[in-house]
Computed example of a mutant assay.
Amino acid sequence: MRMLKLIWDFRGPYAEKTAEHHEIHLKDYIKTEQLNLNITGFQTINDMHAIAFMVVPENIMKPIRDALKPHRGQLYQE
């Protein structure tokens, strides 16, 4: 099963804190929807760009994508 990394981009001087906070909402969504997902996170790209992400199996990606509207996605590689 291919795994996909759904990504939300945040830019500006507060990007890191915003991405960190967004991960909390991703975890809340996983819990509320009772999804068996456990890979979320946030990453600082540079001082003005950070991302939050969630890794999902390809077969359940569409409803999650439609509900959460990530900015982009890519194949997940550990």
Rank of each mutant, 00 (worst) to 15 (best):
H71G: 12
R65T: 08
T44D: 00
R72A: 12
T32H: 14
D9R: 14
Y14I: 06
A50K: 04
F10N: 03
D47Q: 02
N38G: 15
L75P: 00
A67S: 13
N59M: 13
L26F: 06
I45L: 11
D66K: 09
H25A: 14
Q34P: 08
P13R: 01
I45V: 13
E23Q: 08
M3T: 11
R2G: 08
I39Q: 14
E23F: 01
G41F: 11
Y76K: 07
L75R: 01
L26H: 05
K17S: 11
L6N: 03
I51T: 12
M61S: 10
A67C: 05
R11L: 10
Q43R: 10
K31E: 14
T40Y: 09
R65N: 12
D47T: 00
L6Y: 06
R65I: 11
D47W: 00
I39C: 12
D28V: 08
E78R: 10
F53S: 04
I51N: 07
L35P: 11
H22G: 02
H49T: 01
L75Y: 02
P70C: 12
F53E: 03
H25G: 10
F42S: 06
I51S: 06
I24W: 13
D66N: 13
K69R: 11
M1L: 10
F53H: 10
L6W: 05
E20I: 00
N59A: 14
M48G: 00
N36P: 11
A15M: 06
P70Y: 10
M61K: 13
F53M: 07
D28P: 00
L6V: 04
I7C: 06
L6K: 02
L37E: 13
A15C: 11
T40D: 10
Q43H: 10
T44G: 00
P63N: 03
M61E: 13
E78V: 04
N46Q: 03
V55T: 09
R2L: 14
E20K: 09
L26A: 07
D9S: 15
D47F: 00
I64D: 01
A19M: 07
R65S: 10
V56S: 04
R2M: 14
G12A: 06
Q43N: 05
E23G: 00
H22A: 09
M3G: 03
